[in-house]
Design a protein around this nucleic acid. Sequence first.
DNA 1: AACAAGTTTGGCAGGCACTGCCAGATGGGC
DNA 2: GCCCATCTGGCAGTGCCTGCCAAACTTGTT
Lengths: 201, 201
Amino acid sequence: MTQGTQGKGATTSTLWDRTRRLATQEILQTALRLFTQQGYDETTIAQIAREAGVSQRTLFRYFGTKEDLIGGSEEQFVTLLTETVRKQPADAGAWEALRAAFKAALSLHTSPEQALERFRLVHHTDSLRAAYLGKRVRCQEQLLPVLEARLAPSGMDRGQARAIVATAFACFDAATATWLEGNGQGDILDLYDQGLAAVRG
Amino acid sequence: MTQGTQGKGATTSTLWDRTRRLATQEILQTALRLFTQQGYDETTIAQIAREAGVSQRTLFRYFGTKEDLIGGSEEQFVTLLTETVRKQPADAGAWEALRAAFKAALSLHTSPEQALERFRLVHHTDSLRAAYLGKRVRCQEQLLPVLEARLAPSGMDRGQARAIVATAFACFDAATATWLEGNGQGDILDLYDQGLAAVRG
DNA sequence: AACAAGTTTGGCAGGCACTGCCAGATGGGC
DNA sequence: GCCCATCTGGCAGTGCCTGCCAAACTTGTT
């Protein structure tokens, strides 16, 4: 609805878009800084807005909720996951496709340190964790139809496909939890493989 | 903290406790009725309190949050699950123990119709679902140490145990989702078995 | 360079969940 | 019947979030 005549231009040159991008980054950085400094619940929207130099009203226009100030948008995440799965070779099974999707998702983080910091924050804050889990199940639901095609040849019904997707995400979560417990030691994907091996063994 | 000199008496005779129990039921019923009638988000605490005949302040003393007005307390749930697992015979594997725990949890519902209604409500309301998922992972975490003993002989480490517990819960959730999709057709535990079979190949 | 049109912003009022505080009502033990 | 412990209700206040409207700004045109 915003820019209709943009075609596929690489650098969106309009001043509005640039300012918007800057403000987004500024807000996001400020929020993350304050959250890690004094805790999520102890940080108010008013404070973030003040220190980021925008009004509360504008902040809420950029990010719908306080929880959104943590991670990339859910939409972006869903797109990445579904596209990655879709791009997998036709002969790849559902498990491989899901693994590839997780790998792609993990590569979004700029550094393991930042990932650790973020995971820790989400993991230790009830409201944040709940919000994350909500996004997670919505991702699962979006992924289900994409994977059903890959599972139909094996004679799997919808319910079983759902169980497989849910299991993959569960093992991914378990892997990040274990990774977190070890303060970022090792590779999340390795932990994921080990967990899945224990389950499917 | 409330009654200390109660020992293990069956009928708590104090008037206070009886009134308290009555009020709890009244509030719970009113809330569930209003939620199903007009939706969770469209129902305010003020309305529930008014129709249940208590003040908002008292309602919040009985139930800490609006989400708590839906299901049994998290504590009760955790206790049931852990106790059930603990009571399983020593030679039962982790998977059987978890299955038994889910079976026990399912038997808490008074009727499949009520269970369906409740599940539907939780499933369709974002905030409720997020709260439920939060409780769920906390249950997982409490269950982990109980199951670790059962898994140690197989040479499973903590991370793998976590993956197994997470997978069981994931398949349980997938089963309820499928059950919900079929409007309560079939048995949740059967769906759980089918899902787990698909996962464990 | 000024103008018209569309978009974004900020401030205000308000709703809702939730909490701390304090006075008043109520049940329990003597 | 009395005192103490507990519970209740109302009030004010915080924090997240939304709708609304006027002011400021960007853009394309003349």
